[in-house]
């Protein structure tokens, strides 16, 4: 872990849905000030749940942090409402490009500035977002529901940016986008992190990409963190190479004959 002071800390949190379904079984994560941290894992590993536990949206889905603690800038936030957590500067970008379909792109952005009040501040903020996403400015009056996938993704990132976040929780920004667009969006994310010094907790299925933008990463499986370390180290780890990057040591594609081997290793990993 880097020497910087962590802005967000999860201490062994346990999350239950509907008071019975145990989804997270003791997750500990640290996000240092001004850095990107990646959270990797397969479908259903609990990545999105972790983000929702931090942003407080969990309560909206009848989920609850039943054990452990979440600390943001030295303050415990896991019992607070989503609204209060947002006021403290944590903004989650929910997966699946949830734009407000019937509003225009600009109106979407303005809702993002909801907590920042009206008037000048909002306009400056809007210009700042447009400087990162010039394409949004071009199409500012387009109804968001009819925008392309890339534009929608830019819109939801820009929307969170409007709120001048102190921590961004970014859930699968690459989902369902063309490779070129993914590249563009990730470049913007990196730029945001560098220039605005916004720490980002990034959930991603595209492991290769995530490991290039984030200097540090956690790997989740079945509601637990099974591995963490600097991205360079993880990239060389044989299990990560096997299960997430789809490479053997020789750098060639795996043959189907080694499927059994896959299962054995996977069980060990969990």
């Amino acid at each position: 872990m880097s020497s910087k002071e962590p802005i967000l800390q999860l201490h062994n949190i346990e999350v239950k849905y509907h008071e019975v379904i145990l989804v997270l079984k003791g997750v500990s994560i640290q996000v240092p000030e001004g850095e990107i941290v990646a959270l990797l894992g397969a479908n259903g590993a609990g990545k999105s749940t972790t983000l929702k536990a931090i942003s407080g949206l969990l309560k909206h889905e009848d989920g609850r942090v039943t054990d452990g603690a979440i600390e943001f800038m030295g303050e415990q936030i896991h019992r607070k409402d989503a609204e209060e957590i947002a006021k403290r500067g944590i903004f989650q970008i929910i997966e699946g490009r949830r734009v407000f379909e019937h509003l225009t792109l600009e109106e979407n952005l303005r809702v993002g500035g909801h907590l920042r009040g009206n008037g000048r501040q909002l306009r400056d903020r809007l210009e700042m977002v447009y400087s990162y996403f010039p394409r949004l400015k071009e199409k500012r009056n387009l109804t968001a529901g009819f925008a392309s996938g890339g534009e929608q993704q830019m819109c939801v990132i820009g929307r969170a940016l409007m709120a001048s976040p102190r921590l961004m929780l970014l859930d699968e920004p690459s989902m369902g986008l063309a490779p070129l667009l993914i590249k563009e969006i990730f470049e913007i994310i990196q730029k945001l992190n560098k220039e605005e010094r916004i720490p980002i907790l990034l959930v991603e299925q595209n492991v290769k990409l995530a490991l290039t933008v984030a200097p540090y990463a956690y790997v989740m499986e079945n509601g637990r963190i099974v591995m963490d370390g600097p991205s360079d180290v993880l990239r060389e780890n044989p299990d990560i190479r096997d299960f997430y990057l789809g490479l053997t040591d020789l750098g060639t594609r795996k043959s189907f004959r080694s499927v059994k081997h896959y299962k054995r290793r996977k069980r060990w990993l969990t």
Binding site: S55, L57, H60, A82, E83, A86, K87, F91, Q92, I93, I94, R98, V99, F100, E101, H102, L103, E107, N108, R110, V111, G112, H114, L115, G117, N118, V156, R159, A160, A163
Partner: peptide
């Protein structure tokens, strides 16, 4: 107005509106 816009946003996608502090 700000709150009017927030109302429209909530009507569209409550979860996303919540995530923005509405």
């Amino acid at each position: 107005t700000r709150w009017g816009l927030a109302m429209q946003a909530t009507a569209d996608d409550e979860m996303a509106a919540l995530s923005l502090g509405v």
